[in-house]
Simulated scan of single mutants.
Amino acid sequence: MSIKDYSIATIDSCVGRELGVSDWVTVDQARIDAFAACTGDRQWIHVDVERAKRESPFGGTIAHGYLTLSLLAALAIEIGLIPPDASAGLNYGLDKVRFMTPVKAGARVRSRVTLMSAEKKEGGRIIIKTMNELQIEGEEKPALIAESLAMLVA
């Protein structure tokens, strides 16, 4: 997806603007299990379906907070966060993250991205800050909000 009138040359005029909303992504148990295997975080509330049905206040397993956070990069790329005239976009960090609502196994999420700032640096680099809201289908509150930083290379 491309964002209308969004480029390295016009990025300043896009500050304060919503850049887009991603497609829905399902966070199923297989994805949760794969994340647990990759990270070693096998806490029962994420991977023990039967125990989570019995004991979890959520009625089943939930995604790791860091799994939901990790989805933001791919969803931002889907939206078109890296302008077509940039040679690269690199993760640069996070300024603020708040996990607000657990994502239950099987739920669908999407990201809403707003450009908060664009700071030009030497060498044709730009540090951009975005507000990312990971929404859960059918839920009033988002799964998380995160101010993320990326370095664009012209």
Rank of each mutant, 00 (worst) to 15 (best):
S2A: 13
K4E: 15
D5T: 05
Y6S: 04
T10F: 05
I11D: 08
D12E: 14
C14I: 10
V15M: 10
S22I: 06
V27A: 03
V27I: 13
Q29L: 03
Q29A: 02
A30N: 15
I32Q: 08
D33C: 05
F35Y: 12
C38M: 11
C38G: 06
T39I: 02
G40I: 00
D41V: 06
R42A: 14
W44Y: 04
H46I: 10
E50T: 07
E50L: 04
R51Q: 06
E55S: 12
S56F: 02
S56M: 04
P57D: 00
F58E: 12
G59I: 06
T61E: 05
I62C: 01
H64D: 02
G65F: 14
G65H: 06
L67M: 08
T68C: 09
S70T: 01
S70K: 04
L75H: 00
L75S: 01
A76S: 10
A76R: 03
E78N: 10
P83K: 06
P84N: 12
D85P: 06
S87P: 02
A88R: 05
A88E: 03
A88W: 00
N91I: 00
N91Q: 02
Y92F: 08
G93M: 02
D95I: 06
V97C: 14
V97N: 04
R98F: 13
R98Y: 12
M100S: 14
K104Y: 03
G106Y: 06
R108F: 01
V109L: 05
V113T: 15
V113C: 12
E119G: 11
E119W: 05
K120V: 10
K120H: 13
K121P: 14
G124C: 01
K129A: 15
N132Q: 06
Q135Y: 03
E137S: 09
G138E: 14
P142I: 03
P142G: 09
L144A: 09
A146I: 09
E147G: 05
E147R: 09
